[in-house]
Design a binder for these strands. Structure first.
Lengths: 356, 356
DNA sequence: TTGTAGGCGTTATCAG
DNA sequence: CTGATAACGCCTACAA
């Protein structure tokens, strides 16, 4: 990793070289290039001219060392699970809109690699000044791990997941509001037999969605039969299985199913179709997330839209503020969601759906 | 971006601090931590002990400045187009398997942003030592742009696209071999009326695939009717349209279609089904890439598999070698492909497919 | 085996 | 407005 020289020139050009050739001191060069202080226009011209002529590029390492700063924002995410994902892309581009102003760049770390099993390794990234702050995009990370990180004075924020810990700063969409919008929508369509298919129980956001479902039903004075609360894990297959159970059970069948995310909603719709049920005539289905797959699959899923890009920009603003102020962030921030009504939901039919 | 201190401790701990508290010189600390030289076991113990006690983390900026190196590999890619992509994820994880050994990290740059309109800006990343080398994952980048980059002595390699320029190092799958495998497979199934739906003409890899199709047909002594060479742009819709044209033309209809990638192959199959044709009984279809979408869509597409992860590892090895040696890379490297026969291809039927 | 001196390339500070 | 001086925190080179 050592050499950085082109065949011919042996040492890289430094500020001193530019200074000498411009007949000024290095400080003047520094001032011109940092654009800050007032410099005599003639000197400025000379400096800029030789800078261009020598093709000089300031050494960021030296600059950052002298200024005790870092121009990288660390992004920690499990490569295998998230990098190829719409969610990740959206968070990043949202984040980017803010960090671009400060000319910050991204450093990318695979937090699922063995190396980061110990939170101290992630903290080291920060302490070694490889990154001025950390954007953590890793839903599966344990609260304990993150709490430890917070205890080590690392500037960071977790994105896309609700962490139930005051000391851990996190940003995600307003899960509760989203589910309540979905349930409310179904209630307005006349549904009362509304079942729910949940998400991975380890995820704080999944917990929030489930609780919100129960609250919304209770608020509408509807008692939820135990079997209406189905487990799930955000996969097509889990949605499929739980829907299959609900639609073939000997107990009451739902006229509508609220799935904890779009993926499992797709499984629900698949299952319904396999049983010859029409969506939405025989069964209404709602999802959650509104990322691309819902469209790609040629579905017209009524779902809760979360603005991932906005989560990214909010995260960026907060993280930058924390980095500048030196104050750690605290607690959770909810970003608004919106119900997108498409054609997987409709009014409840007078006749109950046919039992298979 | 300035402060990095926790409330209470005002300056970060340096090697000097560790040295003092261990009763040794900073050099000894350096030696212990870099693990290199021989150090008295007793001193080593003391140093390690106080390192842990003080929670010391070496400043990477200072270290890299002193050693004139950089521990970041720059990854340049258009965020919007590629970051959310299986291809990108696979390249990165493949790359990672090599860079992990050297404890290198990734710096991520959005080469589609205005900032990088000028290749000098990308070169600056390298010259400023923000990255020791560049992995460019950007199929749409112009050869001229890349040639300029090469001329500026930047250590880099382009991945996933064939760049027709000896000075520009690139790595991609062996497009020609892949298409020839597909055509050969169809020939063996008895097809002779094999049409081709191409890719974006600006892409070198698309050009190579098309040329290979022509060569394979010619080698089999089959004359290709002009309308058998259909344009396309790697999208479902382009595959759909070209297939529609081929299957409704007044001229001869193909019994098999080779699509330049999986996505357009999906469009072909959709179109065929709309015309009531069965795949593969009435029409054989092959794709190219074998990334996830082909499976996600519930298709069983016979296709050319490219090992993206391997492209990543090959790229990593080459780039690291170039960085170490200071020698620029040159020319293109092909990574092997393999035909994956699934159920979208079959023997040609005796009766020609029904004309719509 | 350990320590000393000096430099990596930049910037903060303060004197002129 | 400009320049000398002294860091920034670490490492190479040489000396002990």
């Amino acid at each position: 990793m050592t050499p950085n020289n082109q065949p011919g020139e042996n040492k890289s050009i430094t500020m001193r070289d530019v200074a000498k050739q411009s007949g000024v001191s290095p400080m003047t060069v520094s001032r011109v290039l940092s654009g800050s202080q007032t410099v005599d226009p003639e000197l400025r011209r000379r400096v800029l001219s030789t800078t261009a002529r020598l093709n000089y590029a300031p050494n960021a390492l030296a600059s950052n060392l002298a200024r005790n700063r870092t121009e990288f924002i660390g992004v920690a995410t499990p490569f295998k699970d998230l990098v190829g994902t719409t969610f990740f892309r959206e968070v990043l581009t949202g984040f980017q809109t803010i960090t671009d102003r400060d000319k910050l760049d991204f450093a990318l770390f695979d937090c699922a690699s063995e190396r980061f099993n110990d939170p101290r390794e992630l903290a080291a990234i920060y302490r070694q000044k490889k990154a001025g702050g950390l954007l953590i995009v890793a839903p599966q990370m344990h609260g304990r791990y993150l709490k430890t990180l917070a205890g080590m004075g690392v500037a960071f924020v977790v994105v896309g997941e609700y962490i139930d810990d005051e000391e851990v700063p996190s940003i995600s969409c307003d899960d509760a509001a989203g589910i309540k919008l979905a349930v409310q929508h179904l209630l307005e369509l006349g549904h009362r037999d509304i079942a729910y298919i949940g998400g991975p129980p380890m995820l704080g956001s999944a917990k929030r969605r489930e609780i919100a479902y129960m609250e919304a039903m209770t608020a509408a004075d509807i008692e939820v039969p135990a079997h209406f609360l189905q487990p799930g894990d955000y996969t097509i297959i889990s949605g499929h299985e739980s829907a299959q159970f609900l639609l073939t059970s000997k107990r009451k069948h739902p006229t509508a199913i609220v799935a904890a995310n779009d993926i499992s909603a797709i499984g629900v719709i698949e299952a319904a179709r396999e049983f010859g049920m029409r969506v939405p005539e025989d069964l209404s289905v709602t999802g959650f997330d509104d990322l691309s797959p819902a469209h790609e699959h040629g579905l017209f899923l009524t779902t809760v839209h979360q603005s991932v890009a906005e989560i990214g920009t909010v995260a960026a603003r907060m993280l930058l503020k924390s980095i500048e102020s030196g104050q750690p962030l605290l607690g959770h921030v909810d970003v608004d969601v919106a119900l997108v009504v498409r054609s997987s939901t409709g009014p409840v039919e007078s006749a109950p759906p046919a039992v298979l």
